Simulated assay, not measured.
Amino acid sequence: MSLVGYARVSTDLRDTAAQRRELKAAGCTEIHEEFASGTMRARPVLAKLVASPGRGDVLVVVRIYRLARSLSHLLEVIETLEAKGAHFRSLGDPIDTTSPQGKFTLQILGATAEFERALIRERTLAGLASAREKGRVGGNPGLRNRDPEAIAKVARARVRSYFHKLNKEAQQWLPAVRQFRPRLPWENVVRIINSRHPGATPWTVERLRRAAGRFVMDRLLDREVLDRAPPSQKDDRLLAIIAGIKSSAPEMTLKEIAQRLEAMREPTPLGRSKWATSSVAHLLERAKQAGLLFEEARHDQQ
């Protein structure tokens, strides 16, 4: 069993020294630090730790607010770790999923979260019923009356909200779209993005096309990214996946890439489940020749 520490502060003007000392004193053999707001969903360091923990490993934090944005987020992270055979421990809170007491505390938290959701639903339904009894109908009066100005206002608000969401997620998808479209099909670009960000919500072809189309409309992307890709070769898909894995973590060894492919249940070119490092090396070389890795390195240097 290995103790893996996670330290976070919300700004790089502060440091994680105090957290690192506590984590080290608790026996953590490795400590990962991240500078990000607790309200941010996209935290690459945390996502990587949760996506591929060692079996039996324990993710350790000083306090739970260093890890989670909310109770539901905390439960989601712990469930993901438990599904992979790993555990979670907070030094300043009574949560340690390696012990019966810690698991009991977790069950109480889960029940509390469900109770809060049930209360919110009940209050919402009661409020709507009370409004109907008093002759009031919920919703926007302008929309109910089909007022053009009200409809246009809501539409503009939805567009702004959608663009704001895309802009927050741009670090996930925009570099890959700029680099690989239209040279690679949308399916391959999606695989590259998902392999680079294993802890994030998976992208789909339709979702990525909509995002790119929106940025093209706002002239933040060249229109050519929407062009049809040339006919793909039989193993273009594998090249795209391996290029995505390697470019997201250049320090990964051939053996680690092989293990990642096996964890993804990605078959070898011969349809086998077990990957050899020689096969990974061959495909990496082909990816470089195809420009999938060379252009990534050049892009990062700019």
Results as ranks from 00 to 15, higher is better:
Ala36Glu: 08
Ile245His: 02
Leu106Ala: 12
Thr268Ser: 02
Glu114His: 07
Gln233Ser: 09
Gln172Trp: 12
Arg8Thr: 01
Ala18Arg: 13
Gly142Ile: 02
Ala200Asn: 02
Leu109Arg: 04
Thr112Ile: 11
Ala118His: 11
Phe115Trp: 10
Ser195Pro: 08
Ser37Ala: 14
Ala18Cys: 06
Ala126Ser: 02
Glu114Asn: 06
Ala113Glu: 12
Gly135His: 06
Gly110Ala: 00
Arg123Glu: 00
His282Arg: 12
Lys234Leu: 12
Leu238Arg: 15
Leu221Asp: 00
Phe115Lys: 04
Thr97Ala: 09
Ile64Trp: 08
Pro185His: 14
Thr253Tyr: 00
Pro175Phe: 06
Leu75Ala: 13
Gln301Ala: 11
Pro100Ile: 08
Gly213Val: 01
Lys165Met: 02
Lys84His: 10
Glu133Trp: 01
Arg146Cys: 07
Ser195Glu: 09
Phe294His: 09
Asp227His: 11
Ile64Gly: 07
His32Lys: 00
Leu254Cys: 14
Phe215Lys: 00
Val45Glu: 05
Asp236Met: 13
Phe35His: 14
Lys165Arg: 10
Arg146Tyr: 02
Asp222Trp: 03
Val225Pro: 15
Pro230His: 07
Arg191Phe: 07
Val45Ala: 05
Gly135Thr: 03
Arg196Asp: 09
Ile64Arg: 09
Ser72Thr: 15
Arg181Leu: 14
Glu116Asn: 10
Leu128Lys: 13
Ser232Ile: 10
Leu74Asp: 05
Gly138Glu: 01
Pro141Glu: 00
Lys288Gln: 14
Glu285Lys: 14
Gln171Ile: 10
Ala131Lys: 03
Phe163Asn: 07
Phe115Gly: 07
Asp93Thr: 03
Phe163Leu: 15
Leu184Thr: 02
Pro148Cys: 15
Arg89Glu: 05
Asp227Ala: 13
Val177Arg: 05
Gln233Pro: 03
Ser2Gly: 04
Val62Gly: 09
Ala243Thr: 10
Ala263Gln: 04
Gly213Met: 01
Leu46Ala: 09
Lys234Tyr: 11
Asn167Met: 05
Leu91Asn: 06
Pro53Gln: 02
Gly199Asn: 07
Thr80Gln: 15
Leu81Gly: 08
Gln101Cys: 03
Leu125Met: 12
Phe294Val: 13
Met252Ala: 10
Leu284Trp: 05
Tyr6Lys: 00
Ala211Tyr: 11
Arg69Met: 02
Ile78Arg: 03
Ala157Glu: 15
Arg183Tyr: 03
Glu114Gly: 12
